[in-house]
């Protein structure tokens, strides 16, 4: 990379033009991630010098709690989210309210059919987290490979992969997922697959940008000059440096997918209603906003905290490996 020289205004123009004016559609996902992981202020919250800081620990604790409780859901002393129904006794001529608000017995209250909302949220976490993690994992695998190849081999291969990604990214993402689910059917596996398809080009783009910048670095060029094979250079020099960036982005990606699952459910293209997911809990409560807002608010709060934790951790990982300067 040539050192910027102060007396060449053309360089500045060149880089500006290169930076900003290529097909602008290209950078949407990266700019989103840039917006989330911007500035060290957030990653440093509650942080005293080295170590992770309070914010990061809180995020880890929350996610760990969520993961263990959803794994252990069958063994937890909570009602079954589908079969256990509690119907309040009707008292003296008053209208019977089934969806009772939160109480000590039911921390998140009951829903319209008498299910315990807390139990549903925990069971919902199983599916929602599964969808999030698996689809981003798949997207990362496929997108990471594609992106690294595209970024490393700049010529025709890279150009071709790049334009395919561009086309995929031009469609509204949720619509694309909706389309896939509608065609394949409303199962957890299909929703996961659909969201994996949607997240693949996003992750590929980021991997590509990252690989592009790393493959220009001196040590990579040096390795190539010494006659190392492409595979070896990618495997040994480029990939290890791209991985932290990808990991940071995967964390944010899981957050995005969790939200997308709920979005799909709301537009009627999610997993079929019998399956408990966060999205389906929300859809189930949408009709009772006035009388029983807690049905919708409880999973919303959980989603918010989860997304917040994932974003925060993603930001911390980013700050630690300082990937943004190189990748974004």
């Amino acid at each position: 990379m040539p050192a910027p020289s102060h007396n060449s205004g053309d360089d500045i123009v060149q880089s500006l033009v290169a930076d900003k004016s290529h097909d602008s559609a290209v950078d949407e996902p990266m700019l989103y991630f840039a917006a989330v992981t911007d500035g060290p202020e957030i990653a440093n919250i509650g942080k005293k010098r080295k170590g992770l800081g309070v914010g990061a620990w809180l995020s880890i604790i929350w996610l760990a709690l969520l993961l263990t409780s959803s794994f252990a859901a069958p063994f937890l002393p909570i009602p079954d989210p589908i079969n256990d129904v509690e119907l309040p006794r009707s008292g003296g001529g008053k209208a019977v309210v089934i969806a009772t608000p939160p109480s000590l017995d039911h921390l998140f209250g009951l829903d319209g059919s008498g299910h315990d909302v807390l139990s549903r949220v925990i069971w919902g976490a199983r599916n929602s987290l599964l969808i999030g993690i698996v689809s981003v994992g798949l997207g990362l695998l496929v997108g990471g490979v594609l992106g690294n190849i595209a970024g490393y081999f700049k010529g025709k291969i890279g150009g071709f992969i790049g334009s395919v990604l561009d086309i995929l990214l031009a469609f509204p993402q949720l619509i694309l997922a909706l389309f896939v689910v509608t065609v394949l059917g409303h199962t957890v596996a299909n929703v996961t697959f659909a969201l994996a398809i949607v997240s693949t080009p996003v992750l590929a783009r980021i991997a590509r940008a990252s690989a592009l910048s790393w493959s220009e670095r001196e040590f990579v060029l040096a390795a190539r000059a010494q006659g190392a094979t492409h595979r070896r250079v990618i495997w040994r020099e480029v990939l290890p440096n791209v991985l932290p960036a990808m990991f940071s982005i995967a964390l944010l990606g899981i957050a995005v997918v969790i939200v997308a699952e709920a979005g799909l459910a709301i537009i009627g293209a999610g997993v079929k209603p019998e399956v408990v997911t966060w999205g389906n809990i929300i859809v189930g409560g949408q009709g009772e906003l006035r009388g029983a807002a807690h049905i919708v608010l409880a999973p919303s709060l959980i989603i918010f905290l989860t997304v917040l934790s994932l974003n925060f951790l993603g930001d911390v990982v980013r700050a630690r490996s300082d990937v943004r300067d190189s990748a974004l």
């Binding site: 939200v259 709920a262 949408q286 919708v296 919303s300 918010f304 997304v307």
Partner: peptide, 13 residues
């Protein structure tokens, strides 16, 4: 940062 973690549908709801 908080707003970014707040999905649009949560705001809407």
């Amino acid at each position: 940062f908080g707003l970014l973690a707040l999905p649009q549908f949560v705001v809407a709801l």
